[in-house]
Structures are given as structure tokens and as C-alpha cells.
């Protein structure tokens, strides 16, 4: 009744959250280090894995992998529909693996990194490392829930030489399924999911719409068909207004009107960064809210994503020797 099932979740999450790099001071400190010290620093941050490589791609993968272990760890403390929901968050990484393999096969490049998942997933390195073509991959997917999606998508991937439609289809599939899982949660949990997790999913979907509209010049009908308003964060009129935006400025203005976005500094504006900043604020407030709730974990979940994003941005910047002042602008912190 008072969220007692989350009593064990809270201390764990609080302890993990202690090392997140999300403040201005921590970001500056990170930027002042040289590459070797920074890699050592990364190793000191990890909680669930030992970062055992110097390779940037592998490091990035291991940092992201840790997020999956957080989900697994928390899932052990939960039961029933909440456990189902939290476990399904991990599916996101299976879908990410699918995208990585498809991209690699389309570009005829080796698969460098895949997330390590539970033993019942076939979309892992052990199973795909010898696969050379999309047909072979399609065959590997037989017996899995993705077979049907791949059957539809592979001809289009090959003919149009892009994985865009397949990836969107996978995201829609995930969004539909997570919506079903959420429908079984209690009212408070539903609200917390809507506040933070749906917000996170919609950040990505809104960026897709933005790109589809202004970079790929797709028609409204096509965008609706590809990126439907699955979580219904916006009402019909708000969603239509977004689609009808004629310029990028209109689009941002409509996002502002719908209460999805606040602009801190109009002269120095970047849509993706600004939306992630909003996500950061939401995540932070969840983490410091009522301790015995699903929101605490969801808050941490999104904050960890932003944290890893920051770490990887700095890693890449150090590799390319970019001016720290410029990198600071790319980081998300409060």
C-alpha cells in the first residue's frame, strides 16, 4: 500500500546514483583530466562491471551494458506485473542489438559490440558473429518474436539501402508492448511511468518526427504511419499541430505550447540537448521524490542514460582533442 515492495530498491538506487556525473562541477572535473586519467576515472565509476578495456568502442559498450545489469538487479526485488514491466525495460537492449546487427550487415561491416543479455536471447554476439547476410540473420530470427517484423522489413532494407523503417517498426513494436505492460500496473505506477519513462521514449520519437519532417521532408501522413502517437502524451490537436509545423521554429514553439519543453537560453538552443535537459530535471525530481516507488528507479534509469551519454561524449572529445569549453556545451548537467 505504501510501496513497501520498493523498500529494497531505494537504498540500492541511491547508492548507484551517487556516482552519476550530472553536475557542472563533476563535468568540469572530468574535462580537466587527460585521456589516460579519464579512462581510470571511468573504471572507478562503474558499479556493476569491471571496465577491462582501453578500447573506446568497447568502453562505450561496457558503460551501456551496466544499465542492463541495473535493470536485472532491481528486477530481483520485485514481483508480479511490476517485475514484468521492469524486465521488459531490458528488451530495449535486445532491440538495440537487432538494430546494430542489421546496420552492420547492411553496411557489410563486422559487428563490434552487442549487449550481453539473458541466456534465452538469440540476438547476442555468440549467435550472430558468423552471420554474413541479412538472409542468414532472418533465418536466425525464426522462432523469435521479431521474425515477422524482419520478414516484412528485410526486402525494403535491401531495396532502399536503409534500416530506418525497420528501426522505426521495432520501436513501435516495443512502444506497443510496453504500453500493454504499463496497463497492468497500479495507478500510481502508471502515473510515474507516464511522467518519466514515456517522456523519455517520446523525446526519441519527437526527434524522429523532427528529422523526418525537416531532414527527410516526409509527408504528414507518412510520418503518422511511421511514428504514431502511441503513448498519447499529446492530445490529437497537439500532435496534429506538431505535424503541421511549417518551420523548425514552429515545431519548437508547438512543443513549448504543449508543455513538453522549456527553453532556458534561446540564443544557445539545441533541441536534442534541451529535451535531454528536461529529462534530467524530471529524473532528478523522481529520484528525490517519495522513496518507496517505481519512480525512483525510473528516475535513476533515465539519469543513468544521460550520465553514460555525458561520459561517452567526453571520451570521444578527448580522443579527438576537442576544446573542453566546446565539449562542456554538449554535456547535460544541472
Amino acid at each position: 500500500m505504501f510501496g513497501e515492495e520498493y523498500a529494497s530498491v531505494y537504498p540500492k538506487v541511491k547508492s548507484w546514483a551517487g556516482t552519476l556525473v550530472l553536475t557542472k562541477d563533476k563535468c568540469s572535473e572530468m574535462l580537466s583530466m587527460n585521456l589516460a586519467d579519464y579512462k581510470q576515472y571511468l573504471k572507478s565509476l562503474s558499479k556493476k562491471i569491471s571496465l577491462n578495456t582501453e578500447d573506446n568502442v568497447q568502453l562505450e559498450g561496457q558503460l551501456k551494458q551496466e544499465g542492463y545489469y541495473f535493470i536485472e538487479s532491481i528486477s530481483r526485488y520485485l514481483m508480479g506485473y511490476t517485475k514484468d514491466f521492469v524486465n521488459y525495460l531490458g528488451k530495449m537492449l535486445e532491440i538495440e542489438n537487432l538494430k546494430l546487427v542489421t546496420r552492420a550487415l547492411l553496411n557489410k561491416r563486422p559487428v563490434n559490440f552487442l549487449y550481453k543479455l539473458k541466456k534465452m536471447s538469440r540476438i547476442q554476439m555468440e549467435f550472430v558473429k558468423d552471420i554474413k547476410t541479412l538472409e542468414e540473420f532472418h533465418e536466425l530470427l525464426s522462432g523469435t518474436e521479431y521474425y515477422r517484423l524482419a520478414t516484412d522489413a528485410i526486402p525494403r532494407i535491401e531495396s532502399e539501402n536503409t534500416t530506418f523503417y525497420f528501426e522505426m517498426n521495432l520501436d513501435n513494436y516495443y512502444a506497443n508492448n510496453i504500453k500493454k505492460k504499463v496497463s497492468k500496473l497500479g495507478p500510481d505506477e502508471k502515473q510515474q511511468v507516464k511522467n518519466i519513462f514515456y517522456y523519455y521514449m517520446n523525446v526519441n520519437r519527437l526527434l524522429w518526427i523532427y528529422r523526418a519532417k525537416f531532414n527527410y521532408s516526409m509527408s504528414n501522413e507518412e510520418i503518422i504511419a511511421i511514428v504514431p502517437n502511441i503513448q498519447v502524451i499529446f492530445n490529437k490537436a497537439q500532435y496534429q499541430a506538431l505535424l503541421d509545423s511549417e518551420t523548425k521554429e514552429d515545431y519548437i514553439e508547438n512543443l513549448k505550447k504543449s508543455g513538453f519543453l522549456e527553453i532556458r537560453n534561446p540564443d544557445h538552443f539545441d533541441l536534442e540537448r534541451e529535451m535531454h535537459y528536461q529529462l534530467l530535471i524530471k529524473g532528478k525530481s523522481c529520484l528525490s521524490g517519495y522513496p518507496f516507488s517505481l519512480g525512483v528507479f525510473l528516475g535513476f534509469f533515465v539519469l543513468n542514460i544521460i550520465h553514460v551519454k555525458n561520459l561517452i561524449t567526453v571520451l570521444e572529445a578527448k580522443k579527438l582533442d576537442i576544446d573542453p569549453a566546446r565539449v562542456m556545451d554538449l554535456l547535460i548537467y544541472y
Binding site: R148, L149, D152, N169, N172, Y173, N176, N220, E221, E222, I224, A225, I226, V227, P228, N229, I230, Q240
Partner: peptide, 28 residues
């Protein structure tokens, strides 16, 4: 239409002067 795409199809067709009838569901 695969179930994952139906919501998008329905929403997109609603923006056009059209009639869409969902007849049934078979598998996925």
C-alpha cells in the same frame, strides 16, 4: 497489416478523406 503498424495506419488514414474498416485480427 502487422499489428504494430495498425495504429499508425489508422491515424494516417484519418487525415485523408477515406473509409477504413477493421475486419478482424488473425494472429499478429
Amino acid at each position: 497489416i502487422p499489428m504494430t503498424g495498425y495504429e499508425g495506419f489508422e491515424s494516417a488514414m484519418q487525415t485523408l478523406p477515406s473509409i477504413v474498416e477493421k475486419i478482424d485480427t488473425v494472429g499478429d
